[in-house]
Design a protein around this nucleic acid. Structure first.
Lengths: 357, 357
DNA sequence: TTTGATAAAATACAAGTAACTTTGCACGTA
DNA sequence: TACGTGCAAAGTTACTTGTATTTTATCAAA
């Protein structure tokens, strides 16, 4: 099997074939004004016969336009899911640095809708050409922002949460419900009896979990367990993100009072809090733990055995690929596939070394 | 956080700064001849002070070179691991079609070393500029081929099998031993007792399995089982790739005579043979099956429940990324990371819909 | 005949490459 | 000493593909 690059038809060739200048062909191709009906017909006739594919890279080089990209993401710590997404985005910027690109990240407090709104204002005031949008809990606020972008005809990409009534250039994320069901399946395999006790640890803030993702993963997990392990007892333990000492107290009390609990799960990246607690405070208590995201603290727990399973989704790649999609769409004018549901990956001690992200 | 594209220093700027022409700067940058010591020093001084990064895309466009890529891969059926790798490679060709690229695939019989050798000759006779090399069982034959490439200073990439004494531009593949260990871990979780019986189904040809990958996965699996489930009994069943009727007979006899076997595994993509057999011939016999590669036949088995687990590695992405690496190295002259050990992924009914490749 | 508007060609540019041309110097011979 | 030859060195320019501005041409109306 062999592929030869067919010698491509250039604008210059089209100009010769239709007996006009390259400028006129360019005007026709881009639907610009100042083309006579006669010229348009001549060029159109040639275009209908051949299959013109422009050289997207030469085009981007020649246009010499500066593209301003902006992203709005949740605030995050250095070792976190969103830090990896952000690094992926920056890698995208670096990769396509040969084209004139600027990139600006705006961060909002995921527990504070007003913070999102004001960062949206800042973002729009920075006059970007395209926008990458992280998740926000409240649909209406998101809708409002997207409407403003649509009005300005600014293309945007969605990261993490998809909405069917929006029209983003692209979406990258995981199906949270299915991902929760998968975590249920793994839990089912891990538990040996059929009437075991499981604890769900939630990290709360402002009376709710940080994201819809987390919420939906729990929904999926519970669905699965209800159907496949109906006799399992599921405990709920609420922890508070900004209160380390309090977290310890809550965990200590919970594990003392619930000696039968041998399985624990979180639906965000904080399973390491439980793993570290058990390792230092109750080293004899054996609890099988499962959580999300291969952040450094979790990877450490997997390696030392204090956490058994992680479910991951390559946030760095998502950031990079999302940026690449936006670049392809906005700079190279190549149409992109809309939805990218990333794979739901199980990480254990045995395969975590090969989860490079 | 904000990144602005710094206004880049061009060759023209360097020429002005060092008081020579762009031609001379180009000669210095590319180490070409006909540059006086004085000019070289002037240009070098400027280069030392600034951080010149060429525009790789403009460079590739201007050079107007046709790059001939060639790949040598094992022969394969339409629904197979290697078919997906090949499609990934073709997608790479399509993606970078704006640069003048030709691509040629040579296929060899994995059970016949002579076939590999003669395809190597054909490949070298086609005078490629860069080569992508699939796995071959016999090290010495591979070594011989790579030596020939080195002598001609042809860059190459390795797919699937890595050798530390070669110097490829890049390598994409899975650590087969570790992947086998991971399959052991999953098997350990799946089995409920501690003295269960497991069958390894091997697909043979010419007295051996098709690849070192397959061999090594089995090694990793056995290592893991020896340590973690020493009481498990492991059966071996050899099937023959080109004998469908014979395969059926062997399976029928095996399952009849080994009523205690409740777990089965293959270390290549043919677990669907066992799944389909059990579903049609012995529908009441419940066997938990695990295999490799999300080929269509296996995906179907996962969905209908006749196979429980697949271990996968995104062959299409591997092909695409491998091609992209070669393109970046050869056309854009961007240095590439050498080793890419891809992640070892577990697929079940619950997450297989999101394994897009 | 001039003015104005539109159409279309010509051209400069993006960044870099490479073929082609010119310059400058050393050396040789008349 | 004058001139020619040869070659290294360095400058100029055309080229890659496509974009976008400027210039020129055309035609109708005043």
């Amino acid at each position: 099997m062999s592929i030869e690059t067919q010698s491509r038809i250039r604008i210059k060739d089209i100009a010769e074939m239709s007996g006009v200048s390259v400028g006129t062909v360019d005007r026709v191709l881009h639907g610009r004004t100042n083309v006579s009906k006669r010229s348009l017909e001549k060029v159109q006739k040639v275009l209908d016969e051949i299959n013109y594919v422009p050289n997207h890279y030469a085009s981007a080089l020649a246009s010499n336009k500066v593209h301003k990209f902006a992203a709005i993401l949740p605030m995050h710590e250095a070792d976190s899911y969103w830090a990896r997404v952000e690094k992926g985005l920056y890698e995208g910027v670096r990769k396509f640095n040969d084209f004139k690109i600027s990139f600006n990240v705006f961060q909002y407090d995921p527990f504070n809708d007003e913070s999102f709104k004001s960062e949206c204002d800042n973002l729009i005031n920075s006059e970007p050409d395209a926008v990458i949008i992280g998740p926000i809990f409240n649909y209406n606020i998101m809708k409002n922002f997207v409407d403003r972008l649509d009005k300005k005809e600014l293309p945007y990409a969605l990261l993490d949460s998809n909405w069917s009534d929006f029209s983003p250039i692209t979406f990258y994320g995981q199906d949270s419900i299915k991902s929760g069901e998968f975590s249920g399946r793994i839990m089912e395999m891990a538990i040996k009896g059929d009437a075991d006790e499981i604890a769900i640890f939630r990290v709360m803030g402002e009376g709710r979990v940080a994201s819809r993702q987390q919420m939906n993963r729990e929904v999926g997990f519970r669905n699965y367990m209800k159907e496949h392990c109906p006799k399992c007892k599921i405990h709920e333990v609420n922890l508070y993100a900004y209160d380390k000492a309090g977290t310890k107290e809550i965990l200590k009390e919970f594990f003392k009072e619930n000696a039968e609990v041998q399985y624990g799960v979180t639906f965000n990246s904080s399973i390491h809090l439980v793993g570290e607690f058990l390792q230092t405070e109750m080293p004899k208590r054996k609890v099988c733990l499962m959580g999300y995201d291969a952040v450094d603290a979790n990877v450490k727990c997997i390696k030392d055995g204090s956490v058994d399973f992680l479910i991951a989704q390559h946030p760095h790649d998502q950031g990079l690929n999302c940026f690449r999609s936006m670049f392809n769409a906005c700079v190279l004018h190549i149409k992109q596939k809309r939805d990218h549901y990333v794979s739901i990956e199980l990480l254990t001690k045995e395969n975590i070394d090969f989860y490079t992200d």
